[in-house]
Design a protein around this nucleic acid. Structure first.
Lengths: 330, 330
DNA sequence: GTGAAAGCGCTAACAT
DNA sequence: ATGTTAGCGCTTTCAC
């Protein structure tokens, strides 16, 4: 934070602060001559506007926020998030907008975080991990903080939304397994209050016509293992299991093997999210990849729009693609 | 629509702005009675101080920055980063400090990012992925931006530093492999201008007494595969390979198998960073885990110290532990 | 213990 | 096309 201010630059260039400000922002016509003088002075004094002063004057933080309310353990295992952030940043960089990241635990901490953020730290927020009937949506609406929902929302929402079709890959997987002769196909979902878990589970139920072999996991390896154990103990055990992420799928695969089952001969297995290691396992894991970076870019663009006052709209980023690999006997 | 300000609260409480300010900050003695009045008024009006106004007045952003200059592809494959951030946040949360994240590409963009950050967006920075003779260290010193280096730095530095011992696990791995009869042990490093890659490679060279079987990778699966292919084509091929991350190790493992080698019988393999899936592979991958969250916590604490003016110091977070699994024939 | 007033460094009406 | 003048909402001397 240089001690030099806009006043120093104005003096150096022989103009007023207003002129310096406008010479840089281009907010009003400035003669080429004075603009050159101003830029020269700024460079000479190595000056650039103070972000905090500008934020106060414009009531704009030039920053957006992402609040993660997940368990750190789950964050660490998540391949979606880093790629998503990279996508967001690639858009923000164009407008010198910063990304404020906050990891919180507990609803109270999360509310406090959004409140503080809305008080001059950020101009908008990106909402991840949406839950059915998510309390954050009305809450942020009341805070009047421009927001973009990443993933579907089950209610009417005042916000823009980046969606993907979670159902299609599930249908595709089931169709393929059926074609290979499977009839006992199980699904290990994520927590069913997550909108995307629910969407996958619903697609599964619709395709199967029953939820008999649906089990709810929590995205951790431990739950993948436990739920798989339960499924394999059934009198008429499944011959295929669709997991809602790769971590659970791999844990399930390990367990099945340790029970003497051959994959995919005795049990077909598929995951979701296409972790970067999944293609390298043996057997390589069938999974669904979804281009998180593209979703990050779309979300950032929609948010910038909203901050500028645009009407909310929904953008479908449909990039889910099923990678059939050895674990389903491709 | 004027938002409610400290003036409104002052009026409501029948005191001045100064009193409100001090009642909240505790920066000067306030009678219990007036403090209660102020807090009641603040709650009634649902007021909390504006972050941007406060930042301008105190010349403190109450935020720290992390600038990632990596290729988005590499970020997405990295299990270190999310856990590290979670650790950082757990410390920042205690002091209402925000984390500003920036992903940039190219040195120019990185310099610009730090300049803007130092101009009122952040009070300090965390430096990751240190390189030998890293230009950012003198640069940030000149910007006078308090900084903490995560990982060793090879020069004299004006900054605090969180270090881990990268050499010890390498020595331990080599000792174990030797005990099992291996003599031709190769090492696939990360880019050798990264300080931690260099440290591991140096430890390897010292333990082996030679760099004949040292090869430089770039942490991607593709490089793991290619370098492995090269090593296996040697007239007197290695019987064990130590990789500097799990991604390369797994790619190498896949390649070796496809060449007809049995793991660990024909070739022992170990990785680094203990990706969350590595324990679930088959064979399970021997790897080195390092508690990134602990390093995040330590880094955040050191940075907060530095921002408050403390002398730089180095903290050793020594949590590297080697997990011997099937891939080395444990 | 509390009040009054002067900034913090910038932007944006309002003038000219 | 440029200058003047108020703020933006808070913290922090300096008085009392």
């Amino acid at each position: 934070m240089g001690r030099t201010t806009i006043a120093d630059v104005a003096r150096e260039a022989g103009v007023t602060k207003a002129t310096v400000s406008h010479a840089l922002s281009g907010n009003r016509p400035i003669s080429e001559e004075t603009r050159a003088k101003v830029l020269a002075a700024a460079r000479k004094l190595d000056w650039a506007p103070s972000q905090s002063a500008r934020a106060l004057a414009t009531r704009r933080a030039n920053a957006i926020a992402v609040v993660l309310a997940r368990d750190p353990q789950v964050i660490a295992n998540d391949s979606f998030f880093p790629a998503f952030i990279a996508g967001v940043e690639s858009v923000l960089a164009e407008t010198e907008t910063a990304l404020v990241l906050q990891v919180v635990q507990g609803r109270e901490a999360e509310e406090r975080a959004y409140r503080t953020l809305a008080r001059g730290r950020a101009d908008g927020a990106l909402l991840l991990d949406l839950r059915t009937d998510d309390w954050r949506v009305p809450f942020l609406d009341e805070l009047a903080l421009p927001t973009v929902l990443v993933g579907a929302y089950d209610q009417d929402s005042p916000f823009s939304c980046v969606r993907t079709d979670d159902a299609a890959p599930v249908r595709e997987l089931i169709a393929r397994l059926r074609a290979a002769g499977h009839t006992r196909i199980a699904h290990v979902s994520g927590p069913l209050d997550y909108v995307h878990s629910r969407a996958r589970a619903d697609a599964y139920i619709e395709a199967m016509g029953s939820d008999e072999l649906l089990r709810e996991g929590d995205f951790t390896a431990a739950s993948g293992r436990d739920v798989t154990e339960e499924l394999l103990a059934l009198p008429d055990r499944p011959t295929a299991i669709l997991y809602s992420n790769d971590t659970m799928a791999i844990a399930g695969l390990s367990l099945a093997r340790s029970r003497g089952l051959a994959i995919p001969h005795d049990l077909a297995i598929s995951g979701f999210d296409d972790d970067h290691l999944s293609a390298h396992l043996s057997p390589a894991l069938t999974s669904v990849s979804s281009d998180p970076a593209a979703r990050g870019r779309a979300a950032a663009r929609l948010l910038q729009e909203s901050i500028l006052g645009a009407e909310p709209r929904t953008e479908i980023v449909d990039v889910n693609v099923v990678h059939f690999r050895e674990s389903t006997g491709s």
